[in-house]
Design a protein around this nucleic acid. Structure first.
Lengths: 231, 231
DNA sequence: GAAATAGTGTCTTTGAGACAATATATG
DNA sequence: CATATATTGTCTCAAAGACACTATTTC
């Protein structure tokens, strides 16, 4: 820093990061929420988040929140900036500008819900409107959900909801869950395989007990779908 | 505010808004920049911007910057949040988080360049790499330009670069300028007219002196193109 | 073999792109 | 009429969607 911090020189702002963490558990799209134990909004549900450190970058802060809540390494999830929410009064205590991030993570069988005294839980997106959300976190969550829905159309991000390997049916289930309607398995299969770099064959198969075993794929190196998948 | 401002309670952040203001002057896409007269980065070019007031919303701040620089009423331009840039050290003086906005405005014949002692000017996007840009404003500008390019594909935002009425050729010129290549006039014409709500006929014509006079249109009420225009 | 899930083939329709043809102005 | 720009028409190709059909497993 060239000049010392002078509190009089600029308005008193606090900057926080809030993360919309989404996962897919067919047939439900789920969001990770934390139940507040302190004022304001005691008992209300909130997005995982917190203050940004003075020497901490925004994305590092978001990443730290994500890892703390899910235990997931960064390689196995997707994290991107969503939007910034800074309307005066959104936090009753003081002027807080919140940079929201969106994370797409695979469904973990082992989830560290409610570590310590803090209650955190996966909530289905369909149940969101019945929950009391703190601050403007409902609007942030909705923005994240809509961003996810839109990006599945023209990116390969659906694979971020899957584990390291997945079947074509599992990938299709991701789309069906996020978009809330079924897709034609035949057309989906063809679309994914004819899109260069969407998925790569592993050569292995997975038997689910019933039906023909499905081939296993891993994510390819393509980031965008051109032309996109139709919602 | 429920609680008084306590400087110790949170890290000292400043929050600013910077606006990427783009316009089209065929065959160039142009960006409005301001030449800095104060340290740091004296003489460098910067995006129009400034601190956010404690009681001022982010978008209002951006809108105020836009109006101050262009004199344009909000109805005649498009303004949206772009992204937030907050890497520690991006401002050498202190920790500053900048919320960037993107504005698309019609080309004004009367531009208030360099009002007062402040030097502001339209610069072609092609010349950007030859300019000294302050802070991380080059990255912000590039993000805005890419956002504009992408959104022309699937939204009707190209009309924001036009005046209240425009010909099909003028609208096509917007696309050609922003994307940097020509489009087939016949196919473009058909695509725009078959997209419900993209433009509305005014019934009037505009003669440019040579060639057949073109019909005049105004923007329709559709926001999105489905299917999109191909870049 | 029946049921279930995976995967392939085929036909129809829609729309993009190339480009020829027509329309209406100016000089 | 030559030229320029605007607009319409036509043909071809790529891809989406519907859906019949085949493949491979468990029970």
């Amino acid at each position: 820093m060239d000049a010392p911090y002078d509190p009089q020189a600029f308005p008193p702002f606090a900057v926080t990061v809030d993360v919309v963490i989404l996962t897919v558990r067919p047939p439900q799209l789920e969001i990770l929420l934390v139940q507040r134990s302190e004022a304001p909004f005691v008992g209300h549900w909130a997005l995982p988040g917190g203050f940004v450190g003075v020497e901490q970058s925004l994305v590092d802060t978001a990443q730290a929140k994500l890892v703390a809540k899910t235990g997931l390494s960064v390689d196995h999830s997707h994290l991107e900036q969503l939007a910034t929410f800074g309307t005066p009064g959104r936090d009753p205590r003081m002027r807080v500008v919140s940079v929201a991030y969106l994370a797409l993570v695979p469904r973990l069988d082992v989830v560290e819900e409610s570590t310590g005294r803090e209650v955190s839980a996966w909530k289905t997106v369909a149940d969101l409107h019945d929950l009391d959300l703190a601050f403007d976190h409902r609007a942030i969550a909705v923005a994240g959900i809509e961003r996810a829905r839109a990006k599945l159309e023209y990116t390969t991000l659906a694979t971020s909801f899957c584990g390291p390997t997945f079947t074509m049916g599992e990938l299709r289930e991701v789309y069906e869950t996020v978009w809330g309607h079924t897709l034609d398995p035949a057309n989906f299969h063809r679309k994914v395989l004819t899109t260069e770099g969407f998925v790569e064959p592993t050569g292995k198969q997975r038997a689910l007990g019933k039906g023909r075993p499905a081939k296993l794929y891993r994510r390819g190196d393509a980031g965008f779908l051109n032309p996109p998948l139709q919602r």
